[in-house]
Each structure stands twice: as C-alpha cells, then as structure tokens.
Design a protein around this nucleic acid. Structure first.
Lengths: 209, 209
DNA sequence: TTGAATTAAGAACAATCGTTCTCTATAATG
DNA sequence: CATTATAGAGAACGATTGTTCTTAATTCAA
C-alpha cells in the first residue's frame, strides 16, 4: 500500500538542510533529487508537507515541519530503550531557538550568589532575561536594588510588592527586600543554561580562523 | 562615526526569524521594517551581510550568519546604566557555541526525577551529554543501569566504581548504585539548559493556515 | 548657506519562483 | 490482454525574486 517512497527523497533533503540550513527551492531540489522534473519535485514536496515534514512559511516558501527532525530509529539504540536520545539533534536544532523567543528583548546575565539555589539557579549560571518593566507576583524577576541587579521572586502582600530569595538553608541571610519607594524591574526570567567543563579542555594555542 | 543604525533593523529581523524560522524576502522585509522601499531594504541587508549577521545561501537567498545568534551579556552590577552606552561594547555570546564543543558527540537528555537536585539539576531540565565510554571519579555521568539511562556522580572506593545521587533530603531513596558486572557509561555531563515559560504559550490545537 | 552624507522612494530588469496543465513511459494488477 | 496507479517529462502562467539605476527628501556639519 506504500504508494510513494517519500523517505529516499526526504533523506537527501534533510542532509541538504543540515548543510545549508535552508529549504531549497523546487528548482534546486530537482537537481538535488537527481534532476527530476520541477513539477514532480513539487508534487513530492506537497506530499512531504501533508506528512508534516515540511510546512508553509511566509512568502509561499517552505520550512521544516514538526516531523522534519525526527530521528530514524535504529542503529546504536538498544532494545527497551527508556527515552531515546531525546530526538533533538544538536546539529539541526539550535538550543538558542529553543530558549529565546524574542531575541531583541533578551539579555543574558551571569548569576552571582546562592540566593536562588532552591530553584536550581546556581552561581555561575547564565540566566535568560526578557526585558520588561512589569511582572506578576510569583514570577522570577531581575530587579534593580541599590544600583545592582538582583534575581529574586516577585511577591505581594497587603503592604505591597517585595522580593523574596529562595534559599531555605540560609533564609536569614536573605531577608525579603522591600523597596523604599518603588520597585524597579528590569525583566523577567525565562530560563537558564550552565556549562560545567573540566578545566584544561582544548588547551594549547587555539588560534583557529 | 556610526553611519547607519543597523541594529534597530536587525532586532526586528531577529524577532521575525525566531517566530518564523526563515529569513524573509526583501519584499516581506520591507513591510516588516515599516514599509521601507525594497531597494533600501536591500541595501541594509547588504550591510548586515557585510557585518556577518547574514550570509548567502544557495539560490541567491540569505540565511543567518555567524553573528546572527549573538546575545548580549549584561553585567551583574550596573555602573551608571546597563547597556546602550554607545562607548562600551557589550559582551556577546552564542549560546550553542558556548555550550557545545563537539556537536557530533553531543546529545541532549531530558532529566527525570530529582536525584541530582543538590547540583541544581531539576526534573525537566535538558542536560548536555558528550558521548564517552569512560569517565573519571567525580564526574557527572550518564550511565546505563538496568536498560535505563540515569544521571549520577561517578565515584570510586576500594571496592570499585559506583554511582552516587546528589539529594541530601532523600538520600535514603537514592542509595549508591553498584554495578553487578561492569558499569556502562554512555557519556559525561557538560552542562544543561532550562526553559521556564508561562504555560499557554503556543499551546493547544496548532491549526495554523 | 552650501554641501555632503544619510535615508529613503520608485521604476525597471531578467531570472527565478511556485504552480498547473497535459502528456508519456514503466510497472503492477486483474 | 487491458487497466490503473506510479513516476516522471515538458511547457507555460503570472507573481515574486534579487538587483540596479535614478531621483528626492532629510539631516547635519562646515
């Protein structure tokens, strides 16, 4: 009942995309697919679209669809695998894409101190902050207190807004911060990333072009 | 000496790309840039290309260049004011390049469970694993135990290698794991990232046209 | 005030785009 | 055998593309 072997075409397209990071036009795809006619190429792309490997992008062009990054299950993976290697391939999916939704409003901040360890935010982590002058209680915000940026949970009670740390073991060291006048919010927390490298990795003269 | 404020244009383009995952045509960009003429749009794109924010893709089209994904890093302490101070050049960072050094050997794994909370590794985080069949004591490794992947600290004593959890409060729930035969290591931990978005973002039936 | 950059607008070009239509081979099926 | 999908070729359409050229408004310093 298999009507058209889409996958042999798909494979080449995926390879091309991994190289060029762009979905080619029908004309280019025709060449890539061993010189098939443009109309035939178009029909196959249509099929790939129906199957969810491609999807429409603005301007009548196509972009990778939800299934485009699916992993071909098979080699290397053991039977009874728990959750297969997260079918996210770092080569194809950018972590950046995943984490950042509004690039122009996003800034990274290195974390200092341990006031938020209970939320898994450690010193040295990079937190991703989206600029905003307001936030709602419960959100983690980057606020400006005494000319310093500080990452805290925004809270509110009958006396107004205040900032809370999240470190049970040293709660006395981090009392709630109540603004003298008004609370200056710089942005809100949307995520973080952390790098834990063994020192000495890639030593020597790294004079790469 | 600043000849053209490229960055106000770049910001909108970056936001567009984050949404649509495609670099628009000059015509569409003209609209995005508040209806500028196509020729002017073209000239700005040329500038962005010269600066490394865009680069040529096959078919006369453009794709993001190396600098397209640079993110500004803020400073924990604000001397005067944060960024923008034309003189001071903001520090820039590409998240993917920062986190991943060997793309072909790198795999992402979603974290399950809370056995490593003391190291700030929470359920739902994505850990970055570099493939390797060996590791040294003290390293965090992704090991295969009972046909399941598990993230633990690799330790060693006179009786040999074993795996340790890092969760003080529930240490009795996570006793050290000693392999019956030999310890199968899948790779070692080099970092993680975490996304904390407000629910409701792009959820539900994604029946877009 | 003059003059040059800067920031556009507008027209025009060939090339390419996506798309559709009609027409063949080839292969399998009954 | 005849039939019916499959796999493709080829031409043709108008729309959009990237690109270049010329001209005009604005800004800003000398």
């Amino acid at each position: 009942m298999q009507q058209l072997d889409i996958f042999s075409y798909l494979g080449k397209l995926q390879d091309y995309y991994a190289r060029e990071r762009i979905i080619p036009s029908t004309t280019q795809l025709s060449v890539l697919w061993n010189g098939k006619a443009r109309s035939w190429t178009h029909r196959i792309m249509q099929r790939l679209k129906e199957e969810g490997f491609l999807e429409n992008a603005p301007g009548g062009r196509l972009r990778p669809g939800p299934r485009f990054f699916e992993r071909t299950v098979g080699h290397t993976i053991r039977a009874g695998l728990p959750q297969q290697a997260s079918d996210v391939q770092p080569e194809l999916l950018r972590i950046d894409d995943y984490l950042i939704e509004n690039p122009s409003q996003t800034i990274l901040f290195p974390v200092k101190g341990d006031s938020m360890v209970d939320l898994g935010i450690l010193e040295g982590d990079m937190v991703i902050i989206e600029r905003s002058h307001s936030a709602s209680p419960g959100q983690i915000v980057l606020a400006i207190v005494d000319d310093e940026f500080t990452l805290k949970v925004l809270s509110k009670d009958q006396k107004g807004y205040y900032l809370e740390a999240r470190n049970d073991r040293r709660s006395k060291d981090y009392p709630p911060i109540r603004p003298e006048q008004k609370l200056e919010i710089y942005g809100f927390y949307v995520g973080l990333f952390r790098k834990t490298r063994i020192a000495g990795h890639r030593l020597g003269s790294s004079r790469n072009p």
